[in-house]
Structures are given as structure tokens and as C-alpha cells.
Computed example of a mutant assay.
Amino acid sequence: MGASGEFMTRFTGKRILITGGTSGIGLAGARRIAEEGGRLILTGTTPQRIADAREMLPTALILDNDAGASDGAEELAATVAKEGGLDGLWLNAGYARTSPVEEVDADFFDRMMNTNVRGPVLQLARLSEHLNPGASVVVTSSTSTYEGAAVASVYAATKGALVAVARGWASALAPRSIRVNVLVPGAIDTGFRSFMSEEVRQTFEADVIGRVPLARVGKPEEAAAVALFLLSDDSTYVTASQYAVDGGLSKR
């Protein structure tokens, strides 16, 4: 089989779980994994996005599962146990809000930490036993970790925490030949900043894009392509690494 044929079947016979897989980068990755022969388990929380994803990916198992819920990881692991082992786990679900530092309160902090840090940590803890030898784990962080944006300190802290725990996971899982790497997207056109007012969003994005050497936002498919490289056997000697997909914004 030629190189192009091999590329199109990288995920044949493999089961991949993507949290936050019903929109944005996760959905772009899921569509491509399906095209390349993979079996998918996706999670989401928005009913319409879940319905749309089920129509788009009829062979995928798509679950209503909240990474920030206290019992979300246990529920997800129980479903995975019925399906069989995982060859890839992409911890991609996330929650973002911005706030001046003076306006951060306990609810704001807890919601962000529960979804972006506690959720993935507990998911990995519960799903670890279901990872097949040689499996790959990808964790979605953000260039916010390195940007120092005044209104994104808590969000940046959660994404920085993921970088730290992923390095520990890489060490812990290496004896099982399981790799752990971090995807670090920059300004990607996913609608992730839709919670902002139009004026604030435009100002924020103009500032970010103004610092991007490639002078544009990225496409979800561009970030997903790097995640799929890390999930596939193309990256069998890559672990404990960070891959920035940011048009050069962080210059990492």
C-alpha cells in the first residue's frame, strides 16, 4: 500500500475517545479519524451540538458527559468499560471565561478549575486502566498559558496546570508504552470566545492576531491535524512534549 493509502487508514481498528468532541477542534479531529477508519467515542454537553454530531458521525458513540461534573469521570469510565480498550484518549473538553482580577470570585474559579483541571485529572485516573499498551494521550492546553492576558489569568492557570500534569502522566504511563503529549492551540476559529460581547471579542482577537507572525487565525482542522499526528502511530517516539499550533504566536 502506498504512503497516501497508509495515511488514510492510520486509525483503522483503533478506538479513540475525544472529550469535547462535538464542536471545534475536537469535532474536526473526530471527522478525520472517522475518515481514516477509526472508531469514536465523543463527549459533549450542548444538546444541539450532540444532535448535530450524531447526524454527522452516525457510527460514533456520542455521550452527554460534563467534564466538570463530580461524577462525570466515573460515568465515562463505565461506558468505556463496556466498549473495550482505548487506543487513543484526547482530553479536549474545556471551559473559558474572562474577568478582571478584581472580579474573580469562588464560583468563577471553581467552574473553571472543575472543568479544565479536575475533570481531565479524574478522567485520566478512571480511564487509565482502559488504555491499551502503546496508546496515546493528548491533552489540549492553550497559548493563554504563555500570553499573560490581563483578563484571562484563571483560564491561563488552568491550562498551565494541564501542561504540568501531562508531564507527570508521561512519566507514570511510559512503562506501559503509553505516550502523553500536549496540544497548545493559539487563536483558532472555533467560536470558543462566543461568550464575549462582539466589541470585546473583536478587540481581543485583533490584539492576538496582531501578534501572530502568520497574521491570521487558524482553522480547527489545522490544530486537529497535529492532535491526530500525536494520537497516531506516526508519533510512537514522542512523549512529554508540547506542540504549539498558533501561527508563531508563542514562538515555542
Results as ranks from 00 to 15, higher is better:
Leu91Asn: 02
Ala170Gly: 06
Gln123Pro: 01
Ser128Cys: 13
Ser141Phe: 08
Val101Glu: 13
Trp169Asn: 13
Ala166Ser: 15
Lys159Met: 10
His130Trp: 07
Leu131His: 04
Pro133Met: 12
Gly94Leu: 12
Met112Asp: 01
Glu129Gln: 14
Ala149Gly: 03
Lys159Thr: 12
Glu103Val: 09
Arg167Thr: 06
Ala157Thr: 15
Thr115Met: 10
Phe108Cys: 01
Gly148Val: 01
Ala156Leu: 11
Asn116Gly: 06
Arg167Ala: 09
Gly160His: 03
Val104Ile: 14
Thr158Arg: 08
Trp169Gly: 09
Asn132Thr: 14
Ala106Ser: 01
Leu162Asn: 09
Asn114Thr: 07
Trp169Val: 12
Tyr95Pro: 02
Thr140Gln: 08
Thr158Gln: 00
Val151Arg: 05
Ala152Asn: 03
Leu122Trp: 05
Ala161Tyr: 04
Val121Gly: 00
Arg111Tyr: 00
Glu102Ala: 06
Ala149Glu: 09
Tyr146Cys: 01
Asn116Val: 02
Arg118Glu: 07
Leu122Arg: 04
Asp105Pro: 05
Leu124Gly: 11
Glu103Ser: 01
Tyr155Cys: 01
Ser153Ile: 10
Lys159Val: 13
Ser171Asn: 15
Ala152Arg: 14
Ser171His: 15
Glu147Pro: 04
Val165His: 05
Ser153His: 05
Gly168Phe: 11
Leu162Cys: 00
Ala164Leu: 11
Ala125Cys: 02
Val139Lys: 00
Ser153Cys: 10
Leu131Tyr: 04
Ser141Ala: 08
Ala170Gln: 07
Arg118Thr: 13
Thr143Phe: 03
Val104Glu: 05
Ala156Val: 06
Gly168Gln: 13
Ser99Phe: 07
Ser128Thr: 15
Ala135Ile: 08
Gly168Cys: 14
Ala125Leu: 11
Ser141Gln: 04
Val121Leu: 13
Ser99Asp: 03
Tyr95Trp: 15
Arg126Glu: 11
Ala150Gln: 11
Ser136Phe: 12
Val165Ser: 06
Ala135Phe: 09
Ala170Ile: 09
Val101Asn: 10
Lys159Glu: 12
Ser171Lys: 14
Ala170His: 04
Ala93Tyr: 14
Leu127Phe: 08
Met112Ala: 07
Ser153Trp: 07
Ala149Met: 12
Thr115Ala: 11
Val151Ile: 14
Ala166Ile: 03
Pro120Tyr: 08
Tyr155Ser: 02
Val154Gln: 08
Trp169Pro: 03
Ala96Met: 15
Tyr146Phe: 07
Thr145Trp: 09
Ala166Phe: 06
Thr143Trp: 05
Val165Phe: 13
Ala156Arg: 02
Ala166Arg: 11
Asn132Met: 05
Thr158Ser: 09
Ser144Phe: 04
Ser171Thr: 15
Thr158Ile: 11
Gly134Arg: 10
Thr115Tyr: 02
Gly94Met: 10
Gly160Ile: 04
Ala156Asn: 03
Ala150Trp: 12
Thr140Asp: 06
Pro100Ala: 14
Asp107Asn: 00
Val151Glu: 08
Ser99Ala: 14
Val165Lys: 07
Arg111Pro: 01
Glu102Trp: 00
Ser153Gln: 03
Val104Asn: 04
Val121Pro: 04
Asp105Asn: 14
Val139Arg: 09
Arg167Ser: 15
Asn132Pro: 14
Val138Thr: 02
Val121Asp: 02
Ala170Val: 10
Thr140Asn: 08
Gly119Val: 06
Asn92Thr: 11
Ala157Phe: 14
